[in-house]
Amino acid sequence: MSDQAYNFAYLDEQTKRMIRRAILKGIAIPGYQVPFASREMPMPYGWGTGGVQVSAACLVPEDTMKVIDQGADDTTNAVSIRKFFENTAGVATTEKTREATVIQTRHRIPEEALTEDQILVYQVPIPEPLRFLEPRETETRKMHALEEYGLMHVKLYEDIAQHGNIATAYAYPVRVEGRYVMDPSPIPKFDNPKLEMAAIQLFGAGREQRIYAIPPYSKVVSLDFEDYPFEASKANHPCDLCGAEHTYLDEVIIDDEGGRMFVCSDTDYCGERQANGHRGRLSPEMEAAQ
């Protein structure tokens, strides 16, 4: 691959300008889904084409990029997207949340609080939160325009009626700045409170051709009922590697006899805690000590 083969960060400048305009509009109208002319990317839809285009439009050569998939830096999706930008933009990459200036993520928000110098880019499969109950796009757009959001609560009502509580565990709908109801992408609802943060949050849906945004320090409220308030739930367990009680955990089956372990889904965060001496139930040193 020669240097001349690609423009910086793969997309041509005109396309990046078009995407930046959509991003700026999205930031100006928090939570509003801005249509954009999504491009074909050298990866399949569902692999983060929306997020990649938004990241490409944001990157400058001085940036340091981090890519996470389900909290991990070392999964296929994360590795391939990180490689993609190493090759096409030549930017530095990192696994350290703190060192990154642009973080592209699928399904998680890093445990460590982000700062005003950072941009968090989400990959979004289905941007329209109302679609499950109202399939007509013309109608859902009108509902957004007129703030007719009763239907979103019908979905939560159905949850409680069927499961006894709000069973929606990810992609939990939020209302941004008291105006637009938004799908925060399939992050666990544990992460919803973190949506109020110092960093810029950008959401890209490639197949659906939509971009939306949450500006820094925006008010983001998870929808709920007075008698069934929103709860940022997680597995009731400490991390088996670093002992953290306050992080989102993945459950890992470790043998065929029902053995399992719970570990932080944010691998960078967990690794740093272990490096600082924190230990969990199944840490190698602990096992060795037993």
């Binding site: 009763g150 609560h153 019908v154 009502y157 159905e158 009626a161 009922f225 007075e226 008698d227």
Partner: peptide, 27 residues
Amino acid sequence: LRMSVSAGGNVGERLMAVGARHYGDIR
């Protein structure tokens, strides 16, 4: 009607549309 929503959800929709936010009352 919304055919994919329960009878209770169908009846409750208009209430929620005008701001009802208490599950027990709606039900």
